[in-house]
């Protein structure tokens, strides 16, 4: 939109011919670095990935040797294997659960920072971002200790009688989802915070003035106005969660394999490049479809 706008402006502006030409060029020049970056590191790799997905093994070749063919049989074959479909389905389920969990934690957190934190606002924001200063892998490994059989979570649960001596939460699908929710929590919290922060508090007063009590005000005013932040936060959590393989490999077991783990092992373990490429492609397309359905459903295109 901004691009079209800039072009529109330059076409109506008057001035000496040279200035006019320069003005017309400016938006393209501004787009150049980003465009090059996208071209080299996104469009070309996608093309290579797609070509890889169409390759077939070299007859009598060693493992990992493939020739370029143009057959789509890889797609039909890979997508008929239950093992892969399960992993794909599991990825979306875990990502959705983790997103809901992150939303349940992140929204109240963002609300508290935006409206109730007072002078502690900045400190709380720093605390939300602080985990980024520690490596993603290290933080995830720390969750093994936290959720481990001797860890603080089970200690507390046993103490209040919610868990027995034999209960275990790691490794399990629960620990994977918890890890995902934890790792992407800042991506959920910050967009919600920023949309709440921008909101005029007088709207809340106006709602109360117009006979709405607290809960109704939240439902009718605060939540709809912060919806763009919620949509952004859920996308920023759900998309990377669906493709993540670190949490499943560090906090999960064989029964919690996500699509990322399959791609990883196909690519590096089995040197089965075409299958890995097919799965990557499928993951990308499914995410694209689900996300566009979600964004259309929430109807926030004009608000974002």
């Amino acid at each position: 939109m901004a691009f079209a706008h800039a072009l529109g402006d330059s076409s109506t502006s008057s001035g000496a011919p040279t200035t006019k030409a320069k003005r017309k060029l400016t938006p393209y020049l501004l787009l150049l670095p980003g465009g090059l970056w996208l071209g080299i590191f996104f469009v070309i790799p996608i093309f290579i990935l797609f070509m890889t997905a169409l390759q077939t093994p070299l007859p009598d070749g060693l493992p990992g040797q493939y020739i370029q063919t143009f057959t789509f049989s890889n797609f039909t074959e890979v997508l008929s294997r239950p093992q892969f479909l399960d992993a794909l389905r599991r990825s979306f389920t875990y990502a959705s659960l983790a997103t809901l969990l992150a939303l349940a934690i992140g929204y109240p957190l963002a609300y508290a920072i935006a409206f109730k934190a007072g002078k502690y606002k900045n400190i709380m924001l720093i605390m939300v971002i602080a985990p980024f200063f520690v490596s993603f892998i290290l933080r995830t490994i720390a969750w093994r200790q936290i959720l481990g059989d001797e860890g603080p979570v089970l200690d507390v649960m046993r103490f209040i009688g919610l868990a027995s001596e034999t209960t275990s939460v790691y490794p399990s699908s629960f620990s994977v989802v918890a890890g995902l929710a934890y790792n992407f929590l800042p991506f959920m919290t910050l967009p919600i915070y920023s949309s709440l922060e921008r909101m005029d508090v007088r709207l809340i007063e106006a709602s109360g003035d117009l006979y709405a009590h607290g809960l109704t005000t939240f439902r009718k005013v605060t939540l709809p106005i912060s919806l763009p932040g919620v949509v952004a936060g859920t996308l920023l959590t759900w998309i990377p969660s669906a493709g993540d393989y670190i949490n499943a490999s560090l906090l999960g077991n064989q029964r919690t394999t996500m699509i990322g783990n399959v791609i990883d092992s196909r690519f590096l373990g089995n040197v089965d490049y075409p299958t890995a490429a097919v799965l990557s492609f499928t993951l990308m397309l499914s995410i694209l479809i689900l996300v566009s359905l979600y964004v259309r459903r929430t109807g926030t295109d004009e608000l974002v």
Binding site: L203, E205, A206, S207, G208, D209, V221, I225
Partner: peptide
């Protein structure tokens, strides 16, 4: 009493219309 319980309505300085 809370503001929502009062038979009183306000026209706010910046209008505070609900943008959504």
């Amino acid at each position: 009493t809370k503001s929502f319980q009062r038979p009183v309505n306000t026209v706010f300085q910046n209008y505070a219309l609900f943008p959504h």
